[in-house]
C-alpha cells in the first residue's frame, strides 16, 4: 500500500480539513463533549491526544512488519496505552492544573477511536514520516475542533474566554462580566447541543459534501475493520 510518491503536504492537511476527525469523521466524541467546558481545556486535551497520536503512529509504522496480523490490535492498544500513561505523567508533573481539569478523560485517551483508527487505517500501511505527519494533522484537526467547542461553550455559558490559561502563558483571558450567562452551555446538554450545531454548520457550509458519516455506526467507524462485529454485519443492523 505504501506509495513512494506520498504527498506529504496532503497527508498533513488531510486531518485538519478534509478528514477532520471530530467534525467530519465524527470520532472521539466522548472527550469532545466532556472536556470542552473551557476553551483552554479543549487545547489541553487536543495537544495531549496529538502527542499520543504522533507517538503511536510512529511506533506502529516502524513495527508494521514485525507485528503479526493476528495480534495487531492488542499490540496497538499496548503501544497506545504506554504513550497515554507517559503523557499523563508529563501533564501531572508539569501542568497539574490541566491534569485536574481533564480528570479521568486523560487516561481515557487510550480508547479514543481516533488513535486506534489511525493506527489501523494509516500507520500500519504507510512509512514513518507520513505516519508522523498524519498524527500531526489529525491532532491539529482534533485540537481545532475541541477549541471551537470550548470557545462557544465558555463564551455562552460563562461569559469568559481562555480563562484558566495561565499554563499557556496567557494571564486571564477575556471576561465579558455577564450577569447571567447561559449556564446550560456549560452543562451536559450544552455539550450535545453545540456539537450538533457545529456538525450541522459544517454540513451546511459544505452543502453536505463534507460529512463522511451520515449515521453513527460501524460502517463509518475507522476502527471498523478492527471490529469483528462489522465483518459479521453486526453492529448497527
Amino acid at each position: 500500500m505504501s506509495n513512494p510518491k506520498t504527498n506529504y503536504l496532503k497527508v498533513l492537511t488531510n486531518g485538519i480539513l478534509k478528514e477532520n476527525p471530530t467534525l467530519v469523521l465524527i470520532l472521539g466524541t466522548c472527550p469532545t463533549l466532556a472536556v470542552t467546558t473551557m476553551a483552554v481545556n479543549g487545547i489541553g486535551m487536543g495537544v495531549a491526544a496529538m502527542a499520543v497520536l504522533i507517538g503511536s503512529n510512529i511506533v506502529i509504522s516502524l513495527l508494521k512488519k514485525i507485528i503479526p496480523d493476528s495480534v495487531r490490535i492488542p499490540c496497538y492498544i499496548v503501544v497506545i496505552a504506554a504513550f497515554v500513561t507517559i503523557v499523563q505523567f508529563l501533564v501531572k508533573a508539569y501542568v497539574p492544573v490541566l491534569d485536574s481539569a481533564l480528570g479521568v478523560y486523560l487516561p481515557l485517551i487510550v480508547v479514543n477511536c481516533i488513535i486506534l483508527g489511525r493506527a489501523e487505517m494509516f500507520a500500519n500501511k504507510n512509512n514513518v514520516v507520513a505516519s508522523a505527519l498524519d498524527g500531526v494533522g489529525m491532532g491539529i484537526g482534533f485540537t481545532i475542533a475541541l477549541f471551537c467547542m470550548g470557545t462557544i461553550r465558555e463564551l455562552a455559558g460563562n461569559g469568559t474566554w481562555m480563562s484558566g490559561a495561565a499554563w499557556l502563558g496567557i494571564a486571564n483571558g477575556i471576561n465579558l462580566h455577564w450577569d447571567s450567562p447561559i449556564i446550560v452551555f456549560l452543562l451536559a446538554p450544552g455539550g450535545f447541543l453545540v456539537f450538533g450545531f457545529l456538525i450541522a454548520a459544517v454540513n451546511y457550509l459544505t452543502k453536505g459534501k463534507a460529512i463522511k458519516k451520515k449515521e453513527f455506526g460501524c460502517a463509518g467507524c475507522l476502527a471498523a475493520s478492527a471490529c469483528s462485529a462489522a465483518q459479521k454485519g453486526g453492529c448497527n443492523e
Binding site: 465524527i26 451536559a188 447541543l193 453536505g208 449515521e215
Partner: peptide, 22 residues
C-alpha cells in the same frame, strides 16, 4: 432541514434527554 438531518438532530435529541436527567 437537510443540513440538520442525521447526526446533528440525534445530538440535539440527546441534549434534551440530558436536560431531563439533570
Amino acid at each position: 432541514p437537510k443540513a440538520y438531518q442525521g447526526i446533528p438532530i440525534t445530538l440535539t435529541a440527546a441534549a434534551i434527554c440530558s436536560v431531563s436527567f439533570m
